[in-house]
């Protein structure tokens, strides 16, 4: 019985992680400029690993595999902010202007100085 519940919960976590990964991927395609795309990439880099690793951990229990999975999660959560920050900083230093939009202005503006 507990096995069944664990399987269901882990399946839901995996599918949730998959859904957020696809949404993040769509965001990376869809958002107007480099900085907003970074935010969309952030979804696939934070919540998707959390949910997917959580789901996988529930399937293996207390084993070495779990330890390594949690280590992977720790590495990912520690390194992705550094990579995002480095990318944003490099893009700013290179002179790319972020798209800014006020609440009244609805027109699409694209950064094109690349």
């Amino acid at each position: 019985m507990t096995e069944l519940i664990l399987d269901v919960v882990s399946g839901l976590l995996l599918l949730g992680g998959a859904a957020f990964a696809v949404i993040g991927g769509i965001g990376v395609m869809r958002f107007p400029d480099i900085f907003t795309r970074l935010h969309a990439g952030g979804i696939t880099d934070t919540l998707a690993p959390l949910l997917i690793v959580g789901g996988l951990v529930l399937q293996s229990g207390f084993t070495l595999l779990t330890f390594k999975l949690l280590l992977i999660l720790l590495f990912l959560l520690f390194t992705t902010p550094a990579a995002s920050h480095a990318t944003a900083r490099a893009a700013l230093v290179a002179g790319l202007q972020p798209v800014t939009r006020d609440s009244t202005d609805q027109k699409e503006t694209r950064s094109s100085n690349s």
Partner: peptide, 18 residues
């Protein structure tokens, strides 16, 4: 821009891990 490429490659890389 080249930074969009880097964002794409970064996402691609973390997804490879998963």
């Amino acid at each position: 821009s080249v930074y969009d490429t880097i964002v794409g490659v970064n996402v691609f890389g973390t997804k490879t891990v998963l």
